[in-house]
Amino acid sequence: MWTIPNILTTLRVFLIPIFVIVYFLDWQWAHQTAALLFWLAAITDWFDGYLARRLGQTTAFGAFFDPVADKLIVCAALLMIIHHYDTVWITVSAILLMSREIFVSALREWMAESGKSAEVRVSFIGKAKTMAQMLALIGLLSELEVFMGIPIYWVTLGKILLAIATVLSVWSMLLYLKAAWKHLVAE
């Protein structure tokens, strides 16, 4: 069970309270450090999947725990940006993103129990949504618009990417629902 990919996934879960605590610390670079920790967690998500396939270390525990770890850290970050930015459109985007994750997870579980999991496999749109979402959250958590006197507009880019992630999220959810619909309405 304790393969390198599973250790990385577990590390990602342990990073959640650390990155949340760091974000709320009262020091100048707290938000940027928390964004860096979130980025590190996002990178471990890519590495654990890559290493599991490359090293032949895929496990049932990893297949279960990896998506759970992803959803936990993303939901924590979404709640933090809702709290910090306190705007309707960020709140609506975050709610749509979290709702989609719950919906698609439940749909995949149901389809797997029905022996139809291949019909709701991760799609390119889902992967693009994840990439846009992770980059958006890093930018919004960091709050950086200027770095060492150079305008970088990370927050502005984060807001744009969050909107893109939200659209891709709803789109991919509808595609998964379409793929599963005939099984959901079958008697």
Rank of each mutant, 00 (worst) to 15 (best):
F147R: 11
A132T: 13
A30Y: 08
V122W: 12
D48N: 01
M134W: 01
E109Y: 14
K127T: 12
L11V: 12
A52Y: 00
T166N: 09
E145W: 05
E143Q: 15
L55D: 14
L96N: 11
A42T: 05
T9I: 00
F124Y: 15
A30L: 09
T10I: 10
W39L: 15
L37M: 11
V120A: 03
R53N: 13
T33W: 13
L25H: 13
I82P: 01
S123W: 02
M134E: 02
A69L: 10
L25Q: 15
A186F: 04
P67S: 10
C75S: 15
E145M: 06
W39N: 12
M98S: 12
A34R: 04
S117N: 11
K178I: 04
L15Q: 04
D70C: 06
K182F: 00
G62N: 00
F19W: 05
I164M: 07
A34W: 02
F61N: 01
F14E: 04
L78W: 03
K178L: 09
L51E: 08
L15A: 13
M98L: 03
R100D: 07
L140R: 02
F61Y: 14
G149Y: 06
L168W: 05
E143D: 15
C75F: 12
A186E: 10
L140E: 02
A136F: 09
I21V: 15
T9L: 01
K116D: 00
A179I: 00
A69H: 04
L15F: 14
T91S: 14
W89V: 13
L177V: 12
A163W: 09
I102Y: 12
V22R: 04
M148W: 10
W89A: 05
I150Y: 12
T156E: 14
G62I: 00
V88M: 14
I16K: 02
